[in-house]
């Protein structure tokens, strides 16, 4: 019994001690991956001027990763989403991976390859930027549309909102049956959280207007009929 109690106490102590470590790992307590940009390069939410920056993994969620790039002497601090992806070619030494084709003469960062066995992360761009990348590159581009989901479309979006954003893949369909255009498909990883309904019930779409029109017209008709009857009666009485 005594041994059992001791073992239980040790287990509880271990859990208590290990919990902050796990939380720190999940929250991305990593020191970050430093990198240097030699020419102007766009990332989600910012354009990096030539200089030194650091990429941080802020949080790893079920189907997405929250990333942050800061540096440039404090000029840049952008937080955005990424998804683990095999379409980013891994580098043995790790580091930034660019999209093959420039967009309007500007380089766009596609993702990040980590050294070791971790899967590379592909950056998720806001819809407008993702459309441009998809038009320039024959690939599926991960995208979010916070403005359409009632969330801030700039860097003020909270991490909680980032967890709830729908992820999409955009690609140009040039030979599709629907005449081309930029097609979007919902990105659903097996671990993606289930979407909650946006309303409790469908809106009431019945108006009282037809009844009001009818009541108004009938009321006027009845009043007119009454006046006619009264006049007839008055005429008969006076005769």
């Amino acid at each position: 019994m005594m041994i059992f109690k001791t073992w239980k106490a040790v287990s509880v102590a271990m859990v208590v001690l290990l919990m902050p470590v796990r939380q720190m790992m999940a929250a991305g307590s990593d020191k970050g991956s430093p990198f240097t940009v030699t020419e102007q390069t766009a990332v989600p939410g910012a354009v990096l001027a030539p200089g030194a920056y650091t990429l941080h993994v802020v949080n790893r969620l079920a189907d997405r990763v929250v990333l942050r790039i800061d540096g440039g002497d404090g000029a840049v601090n952008t937080t955005f989403l990424g998804v683990e992806s095999k379409s980013v070619m891994p580098k043995s030494s790790g580091g930034a991976v660019l999209w093959n084709n420039d967009v309007g003469g500007e380089k766009y960062m596609k993702g990040w390859s980590f050294s070791g066995s971790r899967l590379p992360v592909e950056f998720v761009y806001p819809k407008d930027a993702a459309v441009k990348i998809a038009q320039a590159n024959p690939a599926k581009v991960p995208a979010v549309d916070p403005a359409s989901e009632g969330k801030p479309a700039d860097n003020t979006i909270s991490q909680n909102d980032m967890q709830l954003l729908n992820l999409w893949l955009l690609h140009v369909d040039r030979v599709g049956s629907e005449g081309g255009g930029v097609q979007a498909e919902h990105y659903m990883a097996s671990a993606s959280p289930k979407q909650r309904p946006v309303v409790a019930a469908l809106p009431h779409t019945a108006s009282g207007m037809p009844l009001l029109w009818l009541a108004g017209v009938l009321s006027m008709l009845a009043a007119g009929l009454l006046r006619l009857t009264r006049r007839t009666d008055d005429a008969a009485a006076s005769a």
């Binding site: 819809k127 995208a143 979010v144 549309d145 403005a147 359409s148 989901e149 009632g150 729908n166 999409w168 979007a184 946006v198 309303v199 469908l202 809106p203 779409t205 019945a206 108006s207 207007m209 037809p210």
Partner: peptide
């Protein structure tokens, strides 16, 4: 009416619009 919480027109998501059947 645009149903609150649904995507905006052209947005990535499902846009919901409600209207009176008698107008």
């Amino acid at each position: 009416g645009h149903i609150r919480g649904t995507a905006m027109p052209g947005g990535l998501g499902t846009a919901g619009l409600a209207g009176h059947r008698d107008s």
